[in-house]
């Protein structure tokens, strides 16, 4: 099985998919298997192996789901196909208290 242009989800609740291919260019199409159907996502950024992309538009403040669990929240609006990482996601845990 080839991993070219492939990203995976771990739970159907996930709104991000992890790239299994060796990096993908902006404008290329990523294939993500969600249950029975294969979804196509157009890449809005250059993204490396093991990094995540948004499966649909995510509004600022909405939770990011991976493993079917919350891994953080959108720090700003994230568009479908965007790289999802520290530049647009905040942790919900381990935050310093405002002083």
């Amino acid at each position: 099985m080839s991993n070219d242009s492939k990203a995976i989800i771990i739970d159907e609740k996930d709104n991000v998919a992890t790239l299994l291919c060796d990096g993908a260019k902006k404008g290329s199409t990523m294939q993500v298997q969600i249950g029975e159907k294969e979804v196509q996502v157009e890449m809005r950024d250059n993204v490396e192996f093991g990094h995540k992309i948004a499966l649909h538009d995510i509004k600022k403040g909405e939770p990011i789901f991976k493993y079917g669990e919350i891994i953080g929240q959108a720090a700003r609006d994230i568009a479908k196909g965007e790289h999802v990482h520290i530049h647009n996601v905040d942790s919900c845990r381990g935050l310093a208290e405002e002083k």
């Binding site: 990482h85 845990r93 381990g94």
Partner: peptide, 8 residues
């Protein structure tokens, strides 16, 4: 390596 948060 692609890990975004402590939760992940």
């Amino acid at each position: 390596g692609g890990i975004t948060s402590i939760e992940e």
